[in-house]
Amino acid sequence: MFTILLALIVASLAISVISLIYTASVRSKLRILLMSIKARTLKSYIKSLEERKKVRRRYLVFEFISEESIERHEFEELVKRYFKELFGSVELTKAGISVVILDKKICKGIIKFNSIYRSKILTALALLQIRNGIIIHPLRTTGTLKKALRYAKLVKK
């Protein structure tokens, strides 16, 4: 009788230990799986958020020094040419570049573009400066034309 009881206790202990080990291993695997799902979902969520992000207009106020006099449309053409050379025509159409104002008296101008293309526009302007010799000094990027005009000091406060 005693031996049977002892055997039963030992067997139950062994089963519990085995089950504990098994649950621990499964748990860790489950945790890893859950984490990966979380990371994936989080990534896709961030991506979808970025896609949903509203593309806003931005205005870059800049100062320029040019030896030859340059017209607004000429400058716009130059910017577009170098942008196209660097990033291609697809990006150019998406960027929505236009030179709003180019004041030759105070040597300042404003470029309008879509917000996510800021660094691309600045890269194109750097290339323009090197190749064409027009020195460009970016002063400020704003969200409205009103503010841009104020920074360019084309309008009084």
């Binding site: 660094s119 691309k120 600045l122 890269t123 302007l125 750097a126 400066q129 020195i135 000094h137 970016p138």
Partner: peptide
Amino acid sequence: SKPNEVIHPVMLISILEE
């Protein structure tokens, strides 16, 4: 080596970003 080759740091940073 010329005045027009002096690039604004903001532009240099944007080139690196690209």
